[in-house]
């Protein structure tokens, strides 16, 4: 049986990894550095990758860990779950229904304003369509934490969008 090569496994994920990296770093040049370092690390560690396990979760995790040790990543590292909770303590309002009307640029702006832990979990869940278990592997957290963080991230995003509809916005 033919074991897939690193090239066969990684290159189809290139665009997604770049997109995720750019969302994390918010900068093209930093994103390119991050992706390049991710590929270099993944290539070096590929012999240790267990065939048949989740390659996507594996390489996304490398990218995220690389980001966390980067200059930008270090700024957001160390935030506790409690701190994150404090960032999104607003209860859902009846205006939440307006979110359906939010345009793409408004959602994009809200995503950019979200804290990295909320932004990354939303991207992994909604953009990459990863299951909770896969997200847990990428972020190295329990599934219960995935669920609670995802819930808080959605609330935070919702509040940001509501505030944008109201005409005022601030970063979470």
């Amino acid at each position: 049986m033919h074991d897939a090569t690193f090239e066969e496994l990684s290159m189809p994920l290139f665009d997604q990894l770049y997109n995720f990296a750019h969302w994390l770093t918010q900068d093209r040049s930093e994103a390119e550095d991050l992706v390049q370092e991710t590929f270099a690390k993944a290539l070096r560690g590929f012999s240790g990758f267990q065939a048949g396990t989740n390659f996507r979760a594996w390489i996304f995790r490398i990218l995220r860990n690389t980001f966390l040790t980067s200059r930008t990543g270090l700024k957001i590292a160390g935030r506790s779950e409690e701190e994150l909770d404090g960032l999104a303590s607003v209860d859902p309002s009846p205006e939440a229904i307006l979110i359906g009307k939010a345009d793409r640029s408004m959602v994009r702006q809200a995503l950019q304003e979200l804290s990295v832990p909320f932004r990354e979990i939303l991207l992994l869940c909604e953009v990459e369509e990863m299951a909770y278990e896969e997200i847990a592997q990428v972020l190295a957290i329990p599934i219960g934490t995935v669920m609670s963080r995802l819930h808080r991230a959605r609330r935070a995003l919702r509040e940001l969008l509501i505030q944008k509809f109201k005409g005022g916005s601030h970063g979470l």
Binding site: Y18, H22, V35, S105, V127, E129, R154, L157
Partner: peptide
């Protein structure tokens, strides 16, 4: 709708 919006807006950056 939020999921769809995020999925749509999140696929944004291209290398």
């Amino acid at each position: 709708q939020t999921k769809r919006s995020v999925a749509d807006a999140g696929r944004y950056f291209e290398p």
